[in-house]
Amino acid sequence: MPATFETSFAKALLGAEATFPPGIAAHTGAVPARRFAVYRNNVMASLGAALAQRHPVIERLVGGEFLAAMARQFVMQHPPRSPLLAQYGEEFADFIAAFEPARELPYLADIARLEAARTRAYHAEDATPLGGDGFAALDAETLGDIRLQLHPSAAILRSPFPIVTIWAMNSGELELQPIETGQGEDALVVRPHLDVEIRALPPGGAAFLQSLAGGRPLRDAIGAALADHAGFDLTGNLAGLIGSGVVRAILSPAERTP
Rank of each mutant, 00 (worst) to 15 (best):
M1Q: 11
F5C: 01
E6R: 07
T7W: 04
K11V: 05
K11N: 13
L13D: 05
G15L: 11
E17K: 10
A18L: 13
F20V: 06
P22T: 13
G23S: 05
A25N: 14
H27A: 15
T28C: 10
V38L: 03
R40M: 08
N42E: 01
N42F: 04
M44V: 09
A45V: 09
S46N: 14
S46F: 03
L47P: 07
L47F: 07
Q53M: 10
V57A: 06
I58Y: 09
V62D: 05
G64S: 04
F66G: 07
F66W: 14
A68C: 01
M70W: 10
M70L: 12
R72N: 08
Q73V: 07
Q73T: 13
M76C: 05
P79M: 04
P83N: 12
Q87S: 14
E91Q: 15
I96K: 06
I96Q: 00
A98K: 14
L105E: 10
L105Q: 03
Y107D: 01
L108V: 00
A112C: 11
R118G: 09
R120S: 12
A121E: 05
Y122Q: 13
A124P: 10
A127W: 06
A127H: 12
T128Y: 04
T128D: 07
P129T: 01
P129F: 06
D133L: 12
D133W: 02
D133M: 08
F135V: 10
F135N: 05
F135M: 01
L138T: 10
I146E: 04
I146Y: 07
R147H: 04
L150M: 08
H151R: 06
H151N: 03
P152E: 00
S153Q: 12
R158K: 14
R158A: 14
S159A: 02
F161G: 06
T165H: 03
I166P: 10
W167H: 12
A168R: 14
M169T: 07
N170Y: 15
G172S: 00
G172V: 05
L176H: 13
Q177R: 15
P178A: 12
E180K: 09
G182W: 13
Q183H: 14
Q183V: 15
G184H: 08
G184I: 03
E185C: 09
E185G: 04
D186P: 03
A187V: 05
A187R: 08
V190N: 07
V190E: 02
R191W: 11
R191V: 00
P192L: 02
D195C: 10
V196R: 06
E197H: 13
A200Y: 05
L201A: 11
P202S: 12
P203N: 06
G205T: 00
A207E: 01
Q210N: 15
S211R: 02
L212V: 15
R216Q: 15
P217Q: 10
P217T: 08
R219N: 12
R219W: 09
G223Y: 05
A224T: 07
A230M: 02
A230C: 00
A230S: 15
T235L: 15
G236C: 06
N237R: 11
L241W: 14
L241R: 02
G243F: 00
S244F: 13
G245F: 00
A249I: 00
A249V: 00
A254H: 03
E255P: 11
R256M: 11
